[in-house]
Structure formats: C-alpha cells, structure tokens
Amino acid sequence: MTDTIKLYPAKPAKVYFYGTCLVDLFYPDAGLAGVQLLEREGIDVLFPQDQTCCGQPAFSSGFNDQARDVVVPQLDLFPGDWPIVVPAGSCGGMMRKHYPELFAGTPWQAKAEALASRVFELTDFLLNVCHIRLEDRGEPVRVAMHTSCSARREMGVGDIGPTLLAQLQQVEVVEQARATECCGFGGTFAVRHPEVSEAMVADKTTAIEEAGADTFLATDCGCMMNIAGYAEKQQRSLKGQHIASFLWQRVGGDA
C-alpha cells in the first residue's frame, strides 16, 4: 500500500524535455537551464515542438474531458523509449501520477501508462540518473529552498534540491520555519480562494525572509510566481529563481 519504489534507469543517451506552459511562456530561462544541465551530462535533449500544457489546470478543476482533449495529441510526441524530463514537480506529478487515472478505462490507457512511467522531475533526474557533480564557480551566497508540495509528495523528491545544493561550496542554504508547508498557490486555488491563499503566501514569504535569505530557489515556477509575485507587490526585496537556472549559473553557464 505504500508508494511503489521508484526505479531509475541507467543514464540514457537521449531524453525528451517537457518544458511546461508556465516555463514556456514566463520562465523560459529555467527551461533552457534545465536543457543545458542535461546536455552538460552528455545527454542529447529532444524538445518536441508540439508540446503545450500537461492538462493539470483543467484536471484539478474537475474538467477531465477538457484535460484529456489537451493531452491526447501529446501522447504521441515521445515515440522513442527515452525518459521524459520535466522541470516542475506539479506537471511531472500530473503526468506520472494522474495520467493513468485520467485515462483509465479509455482507449488511451496503455499509452498514458507507458508515458507516465517514463516521467522524471528534473532535479531527481540530475541527481539519481545522471549522478551529476557540480563545481561551484559563484560568489558566496545564502539561499532558501522551496520544494513544491507536488515535488515533495507526489514525486517524492523533497530532499533532492538540498542534496544538490550541498554540492555547492559557496552556497549556504538557510533553514526556514515550516519548510514543508504549502505556499498557497494551488493553481486555481489562488483565484478561487484569494484570501486564504494570501494568508499562506504571506507566511511563506516571511518565513523565508526570517531565515535570512533574500533569494529562494523553487522546483516549480507556480510557487515561484506566487511567492516572488507577492514579495514584489509588497515591495519586499525577496527574489525567486528556479533551481535549474541557479545551478546552471553556479557551474558557470551563461544566464
């Protein structure tokens, strides 16, 4: 009954990269950094141009028909038997955990299940498949880490970010209060229940600031948009960065 144990493949020659719509439209540098980190490991990264959105917004609002219609054409975008790497725990969780549910009992079930089993969250893939080694080329810096709830609880990668950051000698990761608590994003939750969402993101922002960091790293752009957007609206100095962008910069990649 406990979650099935994740099996990691040997480091492949190629991977597919699923950028996610949020990264695509708002934070492409995070996606590009992810691609470059994978290439740095000697992996050939394939980016199917016909990818759009993973369907999660509709799915988590209860509109499964719409979600399926968005996903179906994309099920054929990854024909080779390569892993599919996603720079987001929540879209990764949608693909890995929820596609089998969404397509259960439909003609696409087998295809969806096969795809789901090949999906990996980016940092997990870098650490546990690529066994990445990072040499820190940056200045000393203090950061906080915010792992999304779906990265932590759906993808089970809660301790990967901190483990990767521990390889960087000049980076100090501060301990924040209630680090595992949700930032209040929750997709449409933030607009359906704006007041509760605000109360949550306010606490998260304060916890990070009080820990003594003026930059936080996120596994997911949704959380980042929420926390950094809140700090900006409040004219606070806290900045957010996707962990892929940060890692790429630290190893000397161009931003």
Binding site: G19, V23, D24, L25, F26, Y27, P28, D29, G31, L32, V35, F47, Q49, A190, V191, P194, S197, E198, V201, M225, N226, G229, Y230, E232, K233
Partner: peptide, 19 residues
C-alpha cells in the same frame, strides 16, 4: 491574482522559440 501579487510577465521569447 493581482490583488496580492504582481502579474507574471511573458518572456521575450518562449522556450519553444528558444529551442
């Protein structure tokens, strides 16, 4: 969304375009 946060700004180029 923007009652409590700034609106996200679209990037200069999408990841699709960059790739």
């Amino acid at each position: 969304w923007t009652r409590y946060r700034t609106a996200p700004r679209p990037a200069a180029k999408t990841l699709h375009q960059l790739m």
